[in-house]
């Protein structure tokens, strides 16, 4: 781990072990995510993809192993418990959006801006509107409650909230799950455009093969508690591990690959 490489690595996971009772989810998992890339994490259900995400954003502590995010040690948690302002440098979009249901959509985006910056209420409102429009939400939706808008719109609102403080790192948990294919590919394009424009690093847990093809620079496959394969989607597809073959070359995988070929 040379000092030069350190500055290119946004997330470094070493020897991660996660145990829940008698069940071991991660067994010595190593992973590097580079700055400016979009990495997609795939793997069978129950392999601990979302757990990994939660551990990286310091919501859960692993049983063993180290996690560094943007040079800050996240696990094992430093005794001071201090994330050194890391929580203002990342944005997290949870699977169902996790929007605060008592606030309007716009207030959800305003909340982090109000909480952490000294920006005036009026400008904060303008910025929140910009973020929501960037995420593809029409004006009428800004003042609605999360319960009053569709699932796809909630995802967009959650993305806008994750982007409220202009993070360097964006975490997406199943960003396109539950969206119709048209909305899903729109969402993919949105993530790609925003990443290119803002220079984000994106860590994405997904099952969506189209998203992997369309958006991700690299794909990491979690199998039996480790990163079984990592690389561009074509590199990973070329591997002969049985699950990988079934995943990428099953009917859905082929369809996603073909559509990209066209």
């Amino acid at each position: 781990m040379s000092a030069a490489a350190d500055s290119d690595v946004a997330i470094r996971v070493r020897g991660l072990v996660s145990q829940f009772g008698t069940q071991t989810v991660h067994r010595g998992l190593d992973l590097d995510v580079y700055r400016g890339e979009i990495i997609g994490i795939v793997g069978p259900s129950g392999e601990g993809k979302s757990v990994l995400l939660r551990q990286i954003v310091a919501l859960e502590q692993p049983s063993a192993g180290e996690i560094h995010v943007l040079g800050v040690q996240v696990a094992p948690r430093l005794p001071s418990g201090d994330l050194q302002g890391l929580d203002k440098r990342w944005g997290v979009m949870f699977q169902d959006g996790a929007l605060f249901s008592t606030l309007s959509v716009k207030e959800n985006v305003l909340l982090p801006i109000r909480e952490h910056t000294e920006i005036t209420e009026k400008l904060a409102g303008e910025l929140a509107d910009i973020k929501l429009t960037m995420a593809g939400l029409s004006d009428e939706a800004h003042h609605k409650r999360p319960a009053e808008i569709s699932g796809g719109m909630r995802k967009r609102a959650a993305l806008a909230r994750a982007l409220a403080l202009e993070p360097e790192l964006l975490f997406l948990d199943e960003p396109t799950a539950g969206l119709d294919p048209v909305s899903a590919s729109r969402f993919d394009r949105l993530v790609r455009e925003l990443t290119d424009a803002l220079g984000l690093t994106v860590f994405m847990v997904t099952h969506d093969l189209d998203t992997l093809h369309e958006v991700c620079d690299r794909v990491a496959v979690l199998l039996s508690g480790r990163v079984a394969a990592i690389g561009t989607i074509d590199e990973v597809r070329a591997l002969t591990q049985p699950w990988i073959i079934e995943y990428f070359s099953g009917p859905r995988g082929r369809a996603a690959a073909n559509s990209r070929g066209k």
Binding site: D129, I130, K131, T133, M134, L194, A197, L198, G199
Partner: peptide
């Protein structure tokens, strides 16, 4: 990235 970001901000006009 100034042009790109101004494009993003402008693209979000309502």
């Amino acid at each position: 990235n100034v042009e790109r970001l101004i494009d993003v901000a402008r693209g979000a006009a309502r």
